[in-house]
């Protein structure tokens, strides 16, 4: 195991942010960490990185106890933060050189690593530009490049694709796959389910400071496979229709976004006819489909929250 957390608890005042967490990271895997805001993902990452200490339990990284004063683990660890952590007074190459120097790289070795990383993040043509002169996607790529200079064994990427164009996003996802192919372990957090599905070997879903499910996408779908998802497009959505749908036998959860209802119910409950009947009684419907379960559905079932939409969890 590259990293383990055993019975880890972290509190801020009276609030328990991470609660008796057990987590393992296997060498060479891409591990997706999912959870709504406030699930404890960032706190977990911060403890793994040694930026904060756990109140209880044990955090082990590269077979060493991880804490804020353990600097020896830092040489093998790269963090891609959610915020852009670039030095605005320095250009692309200077940013890379300065950060490389913080990891002890000097001279020819530093020059070679800067050159490799420039190619990897495809910013060679922009190497003399300062961060402000780069697009959002380029800044994100440089942010990733700064975490790669010292060739860490473990890279933690905290929402590395926030607010960027699809082209840059694809570039970053491809980069993650390349890193993993070269033997680097990656922990990847994102609000975009399709990204996590596309790149991660294993997924951990957290809520309220605990792990509520983990496994591959297929395992997660299989383990929550006794449910089906019905998408109903109502002509006149209303609270009355929502209440009526919630009362249908077998229905476990109803979420409304605009005129679209996502209804999670027990599999093979045969209640689709009852749902169409109710929709007909409440102004009719434009369409109804029964969908295969996606990671988004599983997340919704497990946490009761959408990762990006509604309920203030975007």
């Amino acid at each position: 195991m590259l990293a383990t957390m055993k019975n880890v608890t972290k509190r801020y005042g009276n609030q328990t942010v991470v609660n008796q967490l057990d987590l393992t990271v296997k060498s060479g895997e891409i591990l997706g960490l999912l959870g709504p805001n406030g699930a404890g993902k960032s706190t977990t990452i911060n403890m793994l990185c040694g930026l904060i200490n756990a109140d209880e339990g044990e955090v082990m990284l590269f077979e060493q106890k991880q804490h804020t004063k353990n600097l020896s683990t830092r040489h093998e660890l790269g963090l891609v933060t959610q915020d852009i952590t670039l030095f605005s007074g320095l250009n692309v190459v200077e940013n890379l050189r300065y950060v490389g120097g913080l990891y002890g790289l000097r001279g020819a070795e530093l020059n070679a690593r800067v050159s490799d990383v420039l190619d990897f993040i495809e910013l060679r043509d922009h190497r003399k530009k300062k961060p402000k002169q780069l697009s959002g996607g380029m800044q994100r790529r440089l942010n990733i490049g700064c975490a790669l200079l010292h060739q860490p064994k473990l890279i933690i990427m905290d929402e590395p694709t926030v607010g960027i164009d699809p082209q840059s996003r694809n570039h970053i996802l491809e980069s993650v796959k390349k890193l993993a192919a070269n033997g680097t372990t990656v922990i990847y957090t994102s609000h975009y389910m399709e990204e996590v599905e596309a790149v991660c070997d294993r997924i951990i879903i957290m809520d309220l400071g605990r792990i509520i499910a983990q496994g591959t996408v297929n395992e997660l779908i299989k383990n929550t496979g006794n449910e089906s998802t019905v998408i109903l497009t109502a002509i006149a959505p209303s609270p009355a229709l929502t209440r009526a749908l919630e009362e249908v036998p077998g229905v476990r959860q109803v979420n409304m976004a605009g005129n679209k209802y996502t209804i999670i119910s027990a599999a093979n409950s045969g209640n689709i006819s009852r749902i169409t009947e109710l929709a007909g009684q409440h102004g009719g419907f434009a369409g109804i489909t029964e969908q295969a379960r996606s990671l988004e559905d599983i997340f919704l079932t497990l946490t009761g929250k959408s990762l990006r939409e509604g309920n203030g969890y975007a």
Binding site: C49, G50, L51, L71, S72, R74, H75, L77, L79, T81, D83, I84, T85, L86, F87, V99, L102, Y103, G104, C146
Partner: peptide, 17 residues
């Protein structure tokens, strides 16, 4: 500029005390 901004995380995660 460097320790009360996002770059703080970049510096603190490095092996510099």
């Amino acid at each position: 500029y460097d320790m009360k901004s996002p770059t703080r995380a970049r510096l603190l995660v490095s092996p510099i005390a």
